[in-house]
Amino acid sequence: MNHKPIRKTSGNRLTAMMQVRNEANRYLESVLYDLSEFVDEIVIIDDASTDGTFELCQSFAKVTRLIKLDKSEFNHEWQLRQRLWDLAISTDPDWLLAVDADEFYEDLAKLQMRDLINQDKYDWVGFRIYDFWGGCTHYREDDLWLIHQRHTRLLVRYLPDFYYFYPRMDQHVPRLPLSYAVLPGFQSELRVKHYGWAVSKEERYEKYLRYMSSDPNGEWGSLEQYQSILDEYPTLIEWKENRL
């Protein structure tokens, strides 16, 4: 019988997992450069991109698994999440980091990443995600934009015999299996910069239209929050880097 401990305190391999769609001309290239600095492998599902996303992903050495879907599964998100999960665990990882194509880990987080995974006390790590707004200098903080005030589970230990499941929802499915909630975790104060809203007013409007068309009755998310995308004067706070 294999006598290796279920939870290793050294030599853990870290695999980043992403689902992407038409990200070639946004932040994907920078994100992949960034990830290549501190993860061991990157696993990507391209959700039927029509730009050069697939080729861009292929050009990174650490992208060891890459699948392109013929037809987008964006409107059946839990299936897409499940597919990405299955692909990611096929790399036999010790830890998995769920990353979006417009997210950057602050330097301190990258520095501490190995300490976070080379331990046997907890099986997931929560980070604080900040929604940058209209550019890369300020994040949004008002009633409906407070995601940074709680922790989001983004880094998890892969335990081959644990039971994993995603809620079967078409949208707003958590990035990682919900079952991690029963395992002990660590809620870190490390920060993640989300640039998904760090775009022009016109691009935000397009995103608003996309949300409204895929979830017109607010079945999967809050209509109030969709509406707030169009706020003229959101509260913005300047981002300050942590010293290393």
């Binding site: 039971y163 499941f165 919900l178 079952s179 029963v182 395992l183």
Partner: peptide, 23 residues
Amino acid sequence: VNSFEQMVLHDYLDCLDSHYRFL
């Protein structure tokens, strides 16, 4: 496993020993 899913979905998270370990 179905019971475990329902527990987690309803935020009853104290089920590692009672449900998962039962496996």
